[in-house]
Nucleic acid binder design. Structure first.
Length: 651
RNA sequence: GCUGCUGUAGCUCAGAGGUAGAGCACUCCCUUGGUAAGGGAGAGGUCGAGAGUUCAAUUCUCUCCAGCAGCACCA
C-alpha cells in the first residue's frame, strides 16, 4: 500500500495509506471531529467525506460552522431531497438538473401538469419527512454505458443527455439519498438528517428552458432558499421584505413620480414630481458633459431603413425595432423607417458632415438620445427595462493611439459623476473578444490593452468578463452596487472598429490621406429611466436634497398664518428651493405624517409664534427633533443645500 | 417571446352564477389644532377587452391585452 502525506491548515503533516477518505482522516484525529465533519477541501477542491484521496494533498476538514461549505452542502442536498420528494409524490415527473445558487437552489422538472403554488406546501412537508428519516447518502462512480442504460431504462431522457455531455475524461458519479438516485458531481452530506429542517423554504415556481435554450423544452423550475440555521433563514427573508419595500415601482406610485399604462407598454408617463428628478439630473449631466469637453447634439427620431441596413442593425435587430411605414405621396412604394433604437449611426452622420482633420480628434459628441426598442414583453420591468428611454450617450471619434487617454478621461468623468450621485464605489468589468467578431487580432490586442492599461491607471478593481465583448470591439462595464447589495450595470465604454467602416467615416491625417477613425461609445448613467429607478431604490425614495422633487413643505398650523406661509414659500422659491405650501384645514400632526410618508426632506411649520418672531420651525425627515430658526437664515441654508454638487463652491 | 400566476373605485384588497363592498385617498360640513392619521356626511365602478355556455355571466370556458415571478433576450 502506498503512503501519502496530507498537510493540514495548522501546518502539521500526517501520513496515511493511499485511498483514505476524509471521514477516516477525521476519525484518526479526534472522535469529536469525526462526528462534526461534513466535508473537506482537498487541494482547493470541495471534497466529499467518502471520496478516497490517492495522492499527497493539502486538506482542510469542514464542519457546519464553515458557512461557505455548509451552505453549499445543505443547499445541494436539499435539491436532491426536493427532487426525491417530487418524484415520490408525482412518480411520472422527469428530473433534469438542480444546482446550488445564491441563497439556495433550484431544480428543473419536466411534467405535463405544471406545479401549483399549493404544491409547494405538499413538497415541503414531504421534504421534512425525508430529512427526519435520516436516510444515508452514498455515492459510486459508474461507467458511461451503465449510466446510460440505467437512465434509458428508467425513462429519464434528460439524464441521458446529461451523461452524454460529460467529457470522457470525467468520472460519472451517482449519489443516493436513501434509495433515490441522482447523477451528481457532489459532494454531499452523509445523511439527510444533517440538513436543518427549519432553515429552508420553497419560494416560487417558474418556467425555464432546458439548457437555457429558448428553442428547447420549457421545464418547471422550483426555487428554494436555505441556510444553516433558522435564524439565518429568517434574516434573509426579512432582508427580502426590506428590498421589496424599496421597489421603485411601489415608491414611484407613492411619491407620484410616474405611471405606465396598457396603451403604451414599457413607456413612462412622467408626472411633475418624477420629471423634476429627471430634469434636475439631466441639467446636471449637461453641465458635467460641457465641462468634460463634449459638444451636445440632437438627431432625428425617425430614420429611414437604409441607414439601419448600412449600420448592420437592420439585419440583427429588425424585430426589436419600432417600424414606421409611411404612404408617401409620389413614391412608388411605402417608405419604411424605424424609430431610432440607438444614436450611434446618427452621430457618425454628424461626424461625416464636412471634412474632418486629425486636428479635430478626439471629436466628442453627446446627446440625450431618445431611443425606442421593441423589447420582448417579458423583459419589461418598471423603469429598469423600458421600450422608450433616453441615454446619456456620447461618441468619441479617435485615432487608435488616443483610445487609452480617452478611456482614462472617461473613467475619471464617470467616477466624478457617480460620486456626486452618491455612489462612491463601483466595480469595472472588462469584456474582451468574443468568439464571433470582426477585426483582426492585432487590432483587438491593441484595443484590449489600451482599455486595460487605462483602467489600471485608475483602479486595480477590474473583473474579467471573458468573451463578453461586443462583436465590434472590447468594452468596459461599470457596475453599481446599491444599498442592499444588488448590482446594476449602468456605465459603458466600448471600442468600435466596425461602424466607422460600415458608414464610411474618415478624417484627413497629417499625411494628407484619408484615415478611418475609431469610434468610442460611452454612457455614464446608461439611461435616465433606469438610473432614476436605481436612485429611488438606493435611497428608498429619500433622495439627496438637491434631487428631491419637493424639497420643502411649508405647513400652516392655524389659518391665521396663511399669508406668512405663502410669503415663506415665495422666498424659498426665489432662492432656488422647490417649496410648496400646505394651508389645508388639517392638524399639524396630519400634515407632518403625510409629508413624511411622501418623503419630503424638510417640513417648515408655521404658527403664530413664528409669524410674530419672523422664524420657522424646521423638521427634517426622519428626525424627531424640531428647531426654531430665523426665516432668512433657513432660506439661505436651504438654498445652499439645494445646490447641485457640481455647482457647490465649498466642499 | 416562453411557463405559471394575477386583473373588482385613484391606491390596497374582500366578494359571489341573480349585474357590487371595506379601509385609505377625493368633495362638502364641523373643528384653528404645535410635529407621524380629529369628527361627520357625500360622491365615485360597463368588475381589463371581446366571444361562447346559460333564462341570467363581473363570477364558468376560450381568445386577446396588460401586469407580476422566473427563463430567454438586452445593439
Amino acid at each position: 500500500m502506498t503512503q501519502i502525506s496530507l498537510s493540514f491548515p495548522d501546518g502539521s503533516v500526517r501520513e496515511y495509506n493511499s485511498g483514505i477518505t476524509p471521514s477516516e482522516v477525521a476519525k484518526s484525529i479526534a472522535k469529536s471531529l469525526s462526528k462534526k465533519a461534513i466535508s473537506a477541501t482537498v487541494n482547493s477542491q470541495h471534497w466529499d467525506l467518502s471520496w478516497p484521496i490517492s495522492e499527497d494533498a493539502k486538506i482542510t476538514l469542514h464542519t457546519m460552522k464553515d458557512d461557505i461549505q455548509a451552505n453549499e452542502l445543505v443547499r445541494h442536498d436539499l435539491a436532491h431531497i426536493m427532487a426525491r420528494a417530487v418524484q415520490e409524490i408525482w412518480p411520472e415527473t422527469k428530473v433534469t438538473i438542480g444546482p446550488v445558487i445564491e441563497n439556495g437552489w433550484y431544480y428543473d422538472f419536466d411534467r405535463d401538469d405544471p406545479f401549483s403554488p399549493e404544491d409547494l406546501g405538499l413538497i415541503e412537508t414531504k421534504m421534512k419527512s425525508i430529512i427526519n428519516a435520516c436516510d444515508e447518502v452514498t455515492t459510486e462512480v459508474w461507467d458511461r454505458s451503465r449510466a446510460l442504460d440505467y437512465y434509458r431504462q428508467t425513462n429519464e431522457p434528460y439524464k441521458v443527455e446529461l451523461v452524454e455531455a460529460i467529457p470522457e475524461s470525467e468520472p460519472i458519479r451517482m449519489y443516493w439519498h436513501g434509495t433515490w438516485q441522482d447523477l451528481c458531481r457532489g459532494p454531499h452530506l452523509q445523511h439527510t438528517g444533517q440538513v436543518p429542517a427549519d432553515a429552508f423554504k420553497l419560494m416560487s415556481i417558474a418556467g425555464a428552458f432546458w439548457r437555457g435554450d429558448s428553442n428547447r423544452a420549457m421545464l418547471q423550475r422550483i426555487y428554494g432558499v436555505a441556510f444553516t440555521s433558522k435564524d439565518k433563514l429568517k434574516a434573509y427573508l426579512h432582508m427580502r421584505d426590506e428590498a421589496a419595500k424599496r421597489d421603485h415601482r411601489k415608491i414611484g406610485r407613492e411619491m407620484n413620480l410616474y405611471h405606465m399604462q396598457a396603451e403604451a407598454p414599457g413607456q413612462v408617463f412622467w408626472h411633475p414630481n418624477g420629471w423634476t428628478i429627471y430634469t434636475t439630473l439631466q441639467d446636471y449631466m449637461r453641465r458635467k458633459q460641457r465641462a468634460g469637453g463634449y459638444v451636445e447634439v440632437n438627431t432625428p427620431q425617425v430614420v429611414e431603413r437604409k441607414l439601419w441596413e448600412q449600420s448592420g442593425h437592420w439585419e440583427k435587430y429588425q424585430e426589436h425595432m419600432f417600424i414606421v411605414e409611411v404612404e408617401e405621396e409620389h413614391a412608388q412604394e411605402k417608405a419604411i423607417n424605424a424609430l431610432k433604437p440607438m444614436n450611434c449611426p446618427c452621430h457618425v452622420e454628424i461626424f461625416k458632415h464636412g471634412l474632418k482633420s486629425y486636428r479635430d480628434l478626439p471629436f466628442r459628441i453627446a446627446e440625450f438620445g431618445s431611443c425606442n426598442r421593441y423589447e420582448p414583453s417579458g423583459a419589461l420591468h418598471g423603469l429598469m427595462r423600458v421600450r422608450g428611454f433616453t441615454q446619456d450617450d456620447a461618441h468619441i471619434f479617435v485615432t487608435e493611439d488616443q483610445i487609452e487617454q480617452e478611456c482614462v478621461r472617461f473613467i475619471e468623468f464617470l467616477t466624478d459623476v457617480y460620486n456626486d450621485l452618491g455612489f462612491p464605489t463601483y466595480t469595472i468589468r472588462f469584456a474582451d473578444r468574443p468568439d464571433i467578431r470582426v477585426g483582426n487580432d492585432d487590432t483587438w490586442d491593441r484595443a484590449e490593452k489600451a482599455l486595460l492599461d487605462a483602467t489600471k491607471k485608475i483602479t486595480d478593481n477590474v473583473e474579467l468578463n471573458q468573451g463578453d465583448g461586443a462583436f465590434y470591439g472590447p468594452k468596459l462595464e461599470f457596475v453599481l452596487t446599491d444599498a442592499i447589495g444588488r448590482d446594476w450595470q449602468c456605465g459603458t465604454f466600448q471600442v468600435d472598429f466596425v461602424l466607422p467602416e460600415r458608414l464610411d467615416a474618415s478624417y484627413i491625417g497629417a499625411d494628407g490621406a484619408r484615415h478611418r477613425p475609431i469610434m468610442l461609445h460611452r454612457a455614464a448613467l446608461g439611461s435616465f429611466e433606469r438610473f432614476i429607478g436605481i436612485l429611488i431604490e438606493e435611497h428608498a425614495g429619500k433622495l439627496p436634497f438637491w434631487l428631491a422633487p419637493i424639497q420643502v413643505v411649508v405647513a400652516s398650523i392655524i389659518s391665521d398664518t396663511i399669508d406668512y406661509v405663502h410669503e415663506t414659500v415665495e422666498q424659498l422659491r426665489r432662492a432656488g428651493v422647490r417649496a410648496e405650501a400646505d394651508i389645508r384645514n388639517e392638524k399639524i400632526n396630519f400634515k407632518v405624517r403625510e409629508h413624511s410618508v411622501n418623503k419630503v426632506p424638510i417640513i417648515l411649520a408655521i404658527g403664530m409664534r413664528e409669524v410674530k418672531d419672523q422664524t420657522v420651525t424646521i423638521r427634517r425627515l426622519g428626525a424627531k427633533q424640531t428647531r426654531i430658526q430665523d426665516r432668512e437664515t433657513v432660506t439661505r441654508e436651504l438654498s445652499q443645500e439645494a445646490t447641485p454638487p457640481d455647482l457647490c463652491t465649498h466642499p
